[in-house]
Lab assay of single mutants.
Amino acid sequence: MSIQHFRVALIPFFAAFCLPVFAHPETLVKVKDAEDQLGARVGYIELDLNSGKILESFRPEERFPMMSTFKVLLCGAVLSRVDAGQEQLGRRIHYSQNDLVEYSPVTEKHLTDGMTVRELCSAAITMSDNTAANLLLTTIGGPKELTAFLHNMGDHVTRLDRWEPELNEAIPNDERDTTMPAAMATTLRKLLTGELLTLASRQQLIDWMEADKVAGPLLRSALPAGWFIADKSGAGERGSRGIIAALGPDGKPSRIVVIYTTGSQATMDERNRQIAEIGASLIKHW
């Protein structure tokens, strides 16, 4: 067993022997301040990774656009098919120029040779490549099948209805392509620590998230040296922004954090800054 596999296998073990965790309302004060600064709703939840206990939450059962955070769930569904012998990570998928959609920095470079399922998941999570996500959605049967996968996990809230990039439209009061912070946090925890996926697939999923290259201005910008984070960000229309993450000190994750916002007129930089400040408060009061 590799060191990384050992780390993920012992996530519940280490967490069980940690000192009790206590909620700190100071972080919620910052979440509410972010709402004021952005002029928009902000949803927040913080779960203990081992027990699933909610440590703090704000608007945990209000719907927010998922945006690209759905790509972690998508690759979880792909990995479940791999575990069941219905898919192979090494299978190569070929596609054409007509398949390319807006923001496809990886797939646009491989029109000639195609990409493997493993490479597509890596591109979808680490670079948020939209064509990679659409190609992977095709392998599982489309958005409705991802929703069905989530329902089978016990998540009857999260739903995907459309493809990239239309799913980022974020129309107010439109339930399409949305989740709730509580539902997303619980589902992410199941994917990373539950028995739904094999140990190898859980490790692969967290490795992809740990290698995320496009979430630097968010929670990662607030992390002290030595902290662990595996995350996936999302951005959408109407001032929408979000991030889902597993993080913790001492090089291992111990909490799940989900943050979503929508309806702001603020710039992307300002949305990023507010999420980073929430992260800084979380870490300060850990």
Rank of each mutant, 00 (worst) to 15 (best):
I140S: 07
R238I: 08
H156Q: 05
E195S: 07
P60F: 07
D250N: 09
Y95V: 05
T139E: 07
A215M: 05
I278Q: 15
K109N: 06
Q204D: 02
A280T: 10
A185E: 14
E35D: 09
G226S: 11
R238C: 06
S281N: 11
L199V: 07
E56Y: 13
G85I: 15
C75N: 15
L135D: 09
G43A: 04
I54D: 07
E270K: 01
G234I: 01
A133T: 06
G141V: 08
T158C: 06
V157F: 11
S281C: 08
F58I: 00
E119D: 01
T193H: 01
T138C: 06
L55F: 08
A215W: 01
S240C: 04
K232V: 15
D174W: 09
I45D: 00
V72T: 10
I54L: 08
E169T: 10
K32H: 03
R159Q: 03
T138Y: 10
N152K: 09
A246W: 03
V258S: 09
D155A: 04
Q203F: 00
A133Q: 01
W208F: 15
S57E: 12
L73F: 10
V72F: 14
E166I: 14
S264H: 11
G141S: 03
A124M: 13
V78Q: 03
E62T: 00
A84D: 14
K190V: 15
M66H: 02
G76W: 10
W208Y: 01
M67S: 14
V82A: 12
N50H: 03
S68K: 01
K30N: 15
I171E: 02
A133H: 09
D155I: 00
E61M: 04
V258H: 03
R176A: 12
P253Y: 01
R92M: 07
S264N: 01
Q204A: 04
A183I: 10
D113V: 00
S240M: 01
I259M: 10
F58V: 00
H24D: 09
Y44R: 01
W286A: 06
K53C: 15
K30D: 15
A185K: 14
I283A: 12
L74K: 15
A77D: 00
K71Y: 00
G236H: 01
H94S: 09
R92S: 10
A124S: 10
G234E: 12
I206L: 10
G114Q: 02
K30I: 08
G226C: 07
I243S: 02
R118A: 01
A182Q: 12
L79R: 15
Q203R: 09
L191A: 06
R162P: 04
M67A: 14
A280F: 13
D250R: 06
I275C: 14
L135M: 09
M153V: 09
S128V: 04
L219F: 13
G154V: 03
R238S: 08
R63I: 06
E62I: 00
R189I: 09
D113F: 00
K53T: 14
A185G: 04
Y103L: 07
E46M: 13
K53H: 05
A170H: 07
K144C: 07
Q274S: 09
A133P: 06
Y260W: 02
R81E: 05
L199H: 04
A211M: 15
T158G: 05
E62C: 00
E61C: 07
R81Q: 08
A182Y: 07
A225Y: 15
W286D: 06
I278G: 14
L111S: 10
S96G: 00
M209Q: 05
A148Y: 15
N272P: 15
T267D: 13
A84Y: 04
H285K: 01
T69R: 00
P217H: 11
V72I: 02
D174P: 03
P60M: 11
K252Q: 03
S233L: 07
G154C: 03
N134Q: 09
L219W: 10
E210H: 09
Q88T: 14
A235I: 03
L160W: 02
V42N: 13
E108W: 00
S57A: 05
N152G: 13
N272L: 01
V31Y: 06
R92E: 02
W227I: 03
S51E: 09
L282F: 06
P165V: 05
A124F: 01
A185P: 05
S264Q: 04
E108V: 00
G39A: 10
Y260K: 03
K30G: 15
G242E: 04
Q204S: 02
D231C: 06
H285S: 02
P165D: 04
L205R: 08
I244M: 14
L219V: 08
M115Y: 05
N130F: 00
V78F: 14
S96L: 01
V157H: 02
T186W: 08
Y95Q: 01
A170K: 11
N272Q: 12
G263T: 15
G141D: 15
S51C: 01
G248E: 13
F70D: 12
D33R: 03
A230M: 12
Y44N: 00
G43I: 00
L205C: 05
Q274T: 12
I283T: 12
D36N: 11
I256L: 10
R63P: 09
S254E: 03
I259D: 01
F149R: 07
L38Y: 01
R271A: 06
V258K: 01
A77F: 00
P217G: 12
S201C: 13
S233G: 09
G251M: 14
M66T: 01
Y95A: 03
Q86A: 06
A280P: 06
V78K: 14
W286H: 04
L55A: 12
L73G: 07
T178I: 03
L79G: 12
L218N: 11
T193Q: 04
D33G: 02
K109T: 15
K53V: 13
A230H: 12
L199F: 14
L100K: 03
I206T: 10
S281E: 12
E61I: 08
Y44D: 00
L136D: 14
F228S: 05
R273M: 01
L79M: 00
E62F: 02
P172F: 06
P217W: 04
R271I: 09
V214D: 14
E145K: 02
P143H: 07
I229P: 01
G279V: 03
L111G: 04
E62K: 00
L205Q: 06
G216Y: 08
L28C: 05
M115E: 15
R159L: 00
A183T: 07
V101T: 06
T147M: 04
A200E: 14
L135H: 06
V29D: 08
A182K: 11
T267Q: 07
G248I: 09
R41E: 00
A182G: 10
R159M: 00
R63Q: 08
A266H: 04
V258E: 15
S57L: 13
L120M: 01
M66R: 01
S128G: 02
L135N: 07
G226P: 07
A225E: 14
A183K: 05
T187H: 12
F58R: 00
G142A: 12
Y95S: 01
R41H: 08
R241S: 08
G85R: 15
K284I: 03
R220V: 05
I171G: 03
P65W: 04
L218I: 01
I283G: 10
Q274N: 11
Y95R: 02
L282V: 06
A211K: 02
S57D: 10
R220I: 04
S254D: 05
I171P: 03
W286V: 04
L137G: 13
H24E: 13
F58Y: 00
R189W: 15
